[in-house]
């Protein structure tokens, strides 16, 4: 199962500060729900883990992150993560293209993630994967903003919270008034 997630968000922080955090996996991963860096192999290779629970399916991906491109002058970052579920339930692969631009005194962050998931999670969550990703993304953005402004970061990604939030967004959407 493949899906592409694109997003653009704005942060009221200078571009160099944003770049410094975003381009350092040790920093940025603390904002990714359910993720952690377990080992730094070298400047472009890291070992990490992602735990995702969705309903009855819990996936614990252990894998490697490789920085394919990190261009401080162009503010461009390309990284690839490959993870295998620890229990052999499947595999996830993600390539992220990120770009920063100065805007209105702050920074506009835009990125595209190509995610491919094989295995039980793909089976179970095929219809909800986009909603779940959206939710995780929102959590990431709020974490990242909080981190840059020195606030609290919540990077737990538990089944209950994801499922509830997704449901709330979906159901809420049905009743939302136009305009």
């Amino acid at each position: 199962m493949q899906t592409t997630i694109s997003n653009t968000f704005f942060i009221e922080e200078p571009i160099d500060k944003v770049w410094a955090s975003l381009s350092d996996p040790m920093e940025v991963v603390t904002c990714v729900p359910g993720a952690s860096i377990t080992e730094k192999i070298d400047d472009t290779h890291y070992k990490g883990a992602v735990t995702l629970k969705f309903g009855p399916v819990k996936a614990e991906y252990a894998g490697e992150i490789e920085i394919l491109e990190s261009d401080p002058s162009a503010h461009r970052l390309v990284l690839k993560g490959v993870g295998l579920d620890a229990k052999g339930k499947g595999q996830a692969e993600m390539t992220m293209n990120g770009h920063l631009a100065e805007k209105d005194g702050g920074t506009e962050v835009s990125f595209t993630m190509d995610v491919s998931i094989v295995g039980m999670l793909a089976q179970f969550g095929s219809r909800l994967i986009n909603d779940v990703s959206d939710h995780l993304l929102k959590q990431f953005v709020s974490n990242f903003k909080a981190k840059l402004s020195g606030g609290e970061v919540d990077n737990t990604a538990s089944a209950g919270s994801i499922a509830r939030s997704v449901l709330k967004e979906k159901v809420g959407g049905l009743f939302r008034k136009e305009g």
Partner: peptide, 9 residues
């Protein structure tokens, strides 16, 4: 799907 995942299992 193209990876052989069954999408409605």
């Amino acid at each position: 799907d193209e990876d052989g995942n069954i999408l409605n299992g």
